[in-house]
Computed example of a mutant assay.
Amino acid sequence: MLPSSTPAPPRYVDGAPWAEAASSAALRHYRSLPKKGKPQGRESTVLAAFLLSTPHDPRNPTVLSMATGTKCLGAARLSPRGDLVHDAHAEVIARRALLRHIYSEIGRDTPPEWLVASGDGGRWRLRDGHSLHLYITQLPCGVMPVPPSVSMSTREQLVSTNGCSDVDLVQRKPGRGDTTLSMSCFDKITRWSIAGIQGALLSHILEPLYLSTITFGQSPDGAPQGFSIENNIEKVLDARLSSVHSKLPASFRIRKPQFFEAPIPPKEFQQIAGDEAPLTCG
């Protein structure tokens, strides 16, 4: 049972309008940014954005943070001093930016509009009626691939997650050459569904922040007829979360986001393999 200070988020029954709204808000904000650092020519990248919806205008979300990125360091390149960023995937960098934004909001003289005092030891919480969302231009790494045919069984769809036959195992991000030690983005999303996105340090002054929805751009290649990517991602997440048997600490709970497919993103966010090797933007 949820505490009164953290009401359940609204359920988006009709996902198409919301997916369009989330992707439009993120891409509109991206286009407003300077050209420097964006893909050029044949380059491509992944875009991720955290958004906030309000009860006054739920179909017009505001972008809180945004990032692009596809790279992470291999194990051999990690620094013993801890002064290098290991994981620079878009979802991870966008979350880092969101945490910086939250620190800035809480540190202002004027209280933030979307965070309110919780009355629990001087902590803050998300204001009632407000919801956090994540938009990604493609499926997060670590999610099962789209099946090659509709003849694949449900069990095969469930357990085939980037070659991992056990959904209880933590998956490392795929690396080119040197193996990485970074958790896959989908494993991090799984963790956020239990512990929130705020991290350990912010948990001292902020109640857990959970995502209400995750929207991702459709692949240009599409999916086999009759195959629902949203439903299969939910099945994989359910299987991951089913291994959480122990009682969670106070204020934490399992909060599964809803998944939606948005329209195909612009070409600079499409990871298409062709005659020429795709180039990722640095």
Rank of each mutant, 00 (worst) to 15 (best):
Ala49Gly: 03
Gln258Ala: 12
Lys256Met: 15
Val143Thr: 15
Pro147Glu: 11
Gly217His: 01
Pro7Cys: 10
Leu52Ser: 03
Leu126Ala: 07
Asn162Asp: 06
Gln40Asn: 07
Pro34Arg: 07
Pro224Asp: 06
Ile229Val: 15
Gln157Glu: 12
Arg191Ile: 01
Cys185Ile: 09
Phe186Pro: 03
Gly274Phe: 05
Leu99Ala: 08
Ile136Pro: 00
Arg31Leu: 09
Thr161Phe: 00
Gln258Lys: 10
Glu230Trp: 01
Arg255Cys: 13
Ala223Gln: 06
Leu73Asp: 09
Asp87Asn: 15
Leu27Met: 09
Leu78Ser: 06
Pro112Ala: 12
Ile229Thr: 09
Ala25Ser: 14
Arg95Gln: 09
Leu139Lys: 07
Leu64Lys: 05
Cys72His: 12
Pro147Tyr: 01
Pro39Thr: 10
Trp124Asn: 07
Ser184Gly: 07
Gly217Leu: 01
Glu156His: 05
Arg191Gln: 14
Gln270Tyr: 08
Trp114Tyr: 07
Ser104Glu: 14
Arg253Val: 10
Thr110Arg: 02
Gly199Glu: 09
His204Gln: 11
Leu211Ser: 06
Pro220Trp: 10
Pro9Gln: 13
Pro266Ala: 14
Leu27Gln: 15
Ser153Gly: 13
Glu113Val: 01
Ser193Ala: 09
Leu201Tyr: 15
Asp57Met: 01
Ser32Gln: 11
Ile93His: 02
Pro111Lys: 04
Pro220Ala: 06
Ala76Thr: 15
Arg191Leu: 10
Val46Lys: 09
Ser219Phe: 01
Cys281Ile: 05
Ile272Phe: 00
Ile194Thr: 11
Asn162Glu: 04
Pro9Phe: 08
Asp87Ile: 13
Leu98Met: 11
Ser160Ala: 10
Phe216His: 08
Pro140His: 09
Phe50Gly: 15
Tyr210Arg: 06
Arg255Tyr: 09
Arg127Asp: 04
Lys71Ala: 08
Leu202Cys: 09
Asn231Pro: 00
Gly175Tyr: 10
Lys267Thr: 11
Ala75Gln: 13
Ala22Glu: 11
Cys72Asp: 03
Tyr12Ile: 15
Leu132Val: 02
Thr213Ser: 14
Leu33Lys: 15
Glu230Asn: 14
Arg81Tyr: 12
Val116Cys: 00
Pro278Ser: 06
Glu234His: 06
Leu84Pro: 02
Asp166Gln: 14
Pro3Asp: 05
Ile93Pro: 00
Pro61Leu: 05
Pro257His: 01
Pro148His: 05
Thr6Gln: 14
Ser219Ala: 08
Leu158Asn: 12
Val13Lys: 11
Cys281Ala: 13
Ser184Asp: 04
Cys164Val: 03
Val244Thr: 12
Lys38Gln: 12
Glu276Phe: 02
Asp166Asn: 14
Val85Arg: 11
Pro278Gly: 08
Leu98Gly: 05
Ala48Glu: 00
Ser53Phe: 01
Asp128Pro: 15
Val150Trp: 04
Ile205Arg: 13
Arg240Thr: 12
Ser131Trp: 02
His86Trp: 02
Gly129Pro: 01
Met144Ser: 13
Asp128Tyr: 11
Ala195Ser: 12
Glu268Phe: 04
Leu2Cys: 03
Ala88Asp: 14
Leu241Phe: 09
Lys256Gln: 15
Pro55Lys: 02
Thr54Ile: 05
Ser131Gly: 12
Arg176Glu: 13
Cys281Trp: 06
